[in-house]
Design a protein around this nucleic acid. Structure first.
Length: 511
RNA sequence: GGUCCUGUGGCCGAGUGGCUAGGCAGAGCUCUGCAAAAGCUCGUACAGCGGUUCGAAUCCGCUCGGGACCUCCA
C-alpha cells in the first residue's frame, strides 16, 4: 500500500515524488544534537519532523534505516574554524571529563525524546566513535587534491572543488563571490588558501582537552566531516534523505555535499529536507534572546513566559498543528488551544477503542461498560460511509503532500465527529456497515497512535475509576444528588470529567 | 549590505486561480436533576495599492510590516 509521497527537496527547491534508490529500503540521515547542553525546544521540533517522516515511511511499507548521530566532538564555539570545542569548553567550566558532559546531555536528550514519544533511530552513531573513518576521509581528500595541510590542520579546498566542475553553495543558494566579500577573515592572517575553505581536521593546542593522534599531528576532526563519514558508512555513498534544521543548510550541509561529492564522486543525498524554526513572539527561539524553553520547563510550567504547564503530548500535538517548513510561533494562547484539542483527540481514541460493531439485525448489544443499547433495524448511511472514506484518503493526501500534519490533523477531527456520534449513541455503528465502521476505527487509531505518535498520558487507575462510576450510578438512581456531585468533584480534582450520557456513564479527560 | 521566506477571521494555523481546511475562544439550539460532554447552526478572513484573468488569499509589480540565513545554533 505504498503511497505517492511528495517531499520538498531543498536542493531543487520543489516538491518531488519520493522514489528510494532501492525500494523497499530507505536510508534516512538526520543531524543530531551536539551534546554540550540541554536540548531545547527548537531542536525538538526538527527531530519531531523526522520522527513523523520515519513513522510515515514505515507505515506506508518502507524498510527504513534511520541514522541520527550524536555530535560529541569537533563542534566549535564561535568563529567557525577557530575557537574552543563546545564540549571541551563545558567540560572545563564544569570541571568534568568531556565524556561526562557528553553522557549527561545525551541522557537528557534521550529522556526528552522518550517523553515526547519519539521512536528511536535504527543507529545513533557518535563522532568520537568514528575517528578512524574521519582520518581516512581526510587522507583520501588530500590524495584527491581536494584538501591541503597547513600548519597541522587540514582544510577542504573549495577553489579546487569548483574547478573540478562542482558548485559549492548550490544547496543554500550562495554565490562564492558574495560569500567572499562578506567574510570576516583578513587576507594573509589565515592558514587557509581561501577564506571559505573549511577545516576537516584541526590541530589541537596543548590545552585542548579532546585530541587524537593523526598523520598531521595531534588534533581533532572538523564538525562537518563526521556526518559525511557516518552517513557513508551506514547508508552508502549515495542515500535517500538527509534532514536537519534550516539553520544547518549553510555551512554544515553545504560542506557535507562538498565532502561527499569530493570523496565518492557522487552526489551524496537525493532529497534534502529542512525544518523551519520555532519562534516566540515572532522571533527565533534562541538562548541569547532569553526566549528559549527547555522541554522540562514547558512540561513543568516553570518559566517566566509560561502561564501554566503543558504536557509532552500537548507539546507534540501543538508542533504537529503546523507544517514543518513553516515557522511556528509559541504562545500561551496557542498552547492552551492545543491542550484542549489534544485531549479531545485522546478522548476520542479512548472511546473508539471501546466501541464494537453491532449488526443491525441484533436487537441489543452490550458494550465494554456492560450497558445495553437497543438497535432497531438500521439501514446503511451511504453518504456517511463515503465521507469517512473520503476523509481517510484526505489524511493520506495530506501526509503525502510533504508531510502536511496540519491538514492531516484536520482530517482526524473530521473522523472524530463520527467517533463521538457513535459514542454518544447519536449514530448507530450499524449505519456505517461493517466495513465502514472497521475503517473508521482502524484508521482513527492508526493515524493517532502510529503515524502522529500521540498517546494517552495517564496514570489513572481504571479499576478505581470504574468503581467510582458504579457508585455514581447508584447515587444517581437514588437521586442523592449531593453524593453525585461529590463524585463529580472527585473526578474534576484529577482533571477528569464524568460523561453522563443517556445510554451509559463513562469518564474522560477534562478538556 | 547580500540571499531568501513571510503578512489569512478575536487567537493559532492549512490553503494546488473558481469548490466549507481544522483547532481554540464566542453566540444559539438539542440533551440533562443541575451540569458536563457531544452533535447541529452561526461569525463570512485573506497587509495596502495597482495589474493579468471570465474569475485571485492563491500569478505579476510597487509600497509598508515581520522574520531567517550570511558567525555557533535544530
Amino acid at each position: 500500500m505504498t503511497q505517492p509521497l511528495k517531499i520538498y527537496n531543498s536542493l531543487t527547491r520543489q516538491k518531488e515524488l519520493f522514489q528510494p534508490l532501492s525500494p523497499p529500503h530507505v536510508g534516512l540521515y538526520v543531524c543530531g544534537p551536539t551534546v554540550y547542553n540541554y536540548v531545547h525546544l527548537g531542536n525538538v521540533r526538527t527531530f519531531l519532523t523526522f520522527d513523523i517522516l520515519f513513522r510515515y515511511l514505515t507505515h506506508i511499507g518502507y524498510k527504513v534505516r534511520y541514522v541520527r548521530n550524536i555530535t560529541d566532538v569537533g563542534h566549535l564555539v564561535g568563529d567557525g574554524d577557530e575557537g574552543e570545542d563546545k564540549i571541551g569548553r563545558m567540560a572545563k567550566l564544569e570541571k568534568l571529563e568531556p565524556m561526562e558532559i557528553v553522557q549527561r546531555y545525551t541522557n537528557d536528550f534521550h529522556q526528552v525524546l522518550e517523553q515526547l514519544n519519539f521512536r528511536t533511530p535504527s543507529i545513533e552513531p557518535t563522532a568520537t566513535g568514528h575517528l578512524i573513518e574521519q582520518i581516512e576521509a581526510v587522507k583520501d581528500l588530500i590524495d584527491k587534491g581536494l584538501a591541503y595541510e597547513s600548519n597541522g590542520s587540514v582544510y577542504f579546498d573549495i577553489n579546487q572543488y569548483n574547478a573540478n566542475g562542482n558548485n559549492y553553495g548550490k544547496l543554500s543558494g550562495r554565490v562564492l563571490e558574495d560569500l567572499l566579500t562578506e567574510t570576516r577573515e583578513l587576507e594573509g592572517t589565515s592558514e587557509k588558501r581561501n577564506p571559505l575553505d573549511f577545516a576537516i581536521w584541526k590541530k589541537a593546542a596543548p590545552e585542548h582537552i579532546m585530541q587524537w593522534e593523526s598523520p598531521w599531528g595531534k588534533g581533532f576532526p572538523g564538525w562537518h566531516l563526521e556526518c559525511t563519514c557516518m552517513s557513508t558508512k551506514y547508508l552508502g555513498k549515495q542515500f535517500d534523505i538527509h534532514g536537519g534544521g534550516m539553520d544547518l543548510k549553510f555551512p554544515h550541509h553545504e560542506c557535507e555535499i562538498a565532502q561527499g561529492t569530493g570523496l565518492n564522486g557522487t552526489e551524496p543525498v537525493r532529497y534534502w529536507m529542512h525544518s523551519n524554526m520555532l519562534t516566540v513572539n515572532g522571533q527565533k527561539m534562541s538562548k541569547s534572546l532569553g526566549n528559549s524553553f527547555l522541554p522540562v520547563e514547558l512540561f513543568s510550567g516553570n518559566h517566566p513566559l509560561l502561564e501554566q504547564a503543558y504536557s509532552p503530548m500537548t507539546s507534540r500535538f501543538f508542533m504537529l498543528q503546523s507544517q514543518y517548513r513553516s515557522t511556528l510561533d509559541f504562545s500561551n494562547d496557542a498552547l492552551k488551544g492545543s491542550q484542549k484539542a489534544y485531549k479531545r483527540i485522546i478522548n476520542g481514541l479512548k472511546a473508539i477503542k471501546a466501541l464494537t460493531y453491532i449488526p443491525a439485525e441484533v436487537e441489543s448489544y452490550s458494550n465494554e461498560a456492560g450497558l445495553k443499547v437497543s438497535t432497531p433495524g438500521v439501514t446503511i448511511d451511504e453518504k456517511k460511509v463515503a465521507d469517512i472514506q473520503k476523509t481517510v484518503q484526505a489524511f493520506y493526501d495530506a501526509m503525502n503532500d510533504d508531510l502536511n500534519t496540519a491538514v492531516a490533523i484536520a482530517q482526524l477531527f473530521n473522523l472524530l465527529k463520527y467517533v463521538n456520534m457513535i459514542y454518544l449513541n447519536q449514530l448507530n455503528p450499524a449505519a456505517l456497515g461493517k466495513e465502514g465502521f472497521a475503517l473508521l476505527k482502524e484508521k482513527y487509531i492508526t493515524f493517532t497512535e502510529e503515524i502522529l505518535g500521540l498517546k494517552e498520558e495517564t496514570t489513572e487507575n481504571n479499576a478505581v475509576l470504574s468503581g467510582m462510576l458504579d457508585l455514581y450510578r447508584e447515587y444517581k438512581s437514588a437521586q442523592q444528588y449531593d453524593k453525585v456531585n461529590q463524585i463529580r468533584s472527585y473526578f474534576k480534582a484529577q482533571n477528569l470529567v464524568i460523561r453522563d450520557m443517556k445510554h451509559q456513564i463513562d469518564w474522560a479527560y477534562e478538556e
